[in-house]
């Protein structure tokens, strides 16, 4: 992206003016952060998701933080997924199902 690029906007006074690049990026960052929750849950519409991904490809600051959040979530999931139901619980449930059939059966 051309660093000298300026974007034309209409100010509150109705005058056309240009915004410096860093301010445009700031707005894009704010926009991306606002959608962080849904982005991480894959709940964004495809076009919104693409927009964020495009921003992340351009903005190192956001990329680092979003990558951190994604890593945290997947790490939490991995760790918690290692917990298994006790064998005794599984056996007890199987026993109860059989018992249920014999006491309510034909």
């Amino acid at each position: 992206m051309n660093a000298n690029k300026r974007e034309r906007v209409i100010g509150e006074d109705g005058q056309e003016r240009t915004l410096p690049q860093d301010q445009i990026e700031y707005n894009q960052c704010q926009d991306a952060v606002k959608r962080l929750t849904e982005y991480l849950s894959h709940e964004l519409r495809p076009d919104e998701e693409t927009k964020i991904q495009r921003h992340l490809a351009q903005c190192k600051g956001c990329f680092t933080k979003f990558h951190f959040e994604e890593t945290l979530l997947s790490t939490i999931r991995e760790r918690v997924d290692q917990v298994r139901a006790p064998i005794s619980l599984r056996e007890r449930i199987l026993g109860l199902l059989t018992h249920h059939d014999s006491s309510f059966g034909a």
Binding site: V80, V83, A85, P86, L89, R90, I93, L97
Partner: peptide, 27 residues
């Protein structure tokens, strides 16, 4: 059952209650 147990444990914060909750869910 593993996913249910993990969630039950996180909800009830206690293995005994988690067992009961999962068992009752299956019944």
């Amino acid at each position: 059952i593993d996913a249910l147990y993990r969630a039950a444990y996180s909800m009830t914060k206690n293995p005994g209650d988690a067992d009961d909750l999962v068992q009752d869910t299956y019944l």
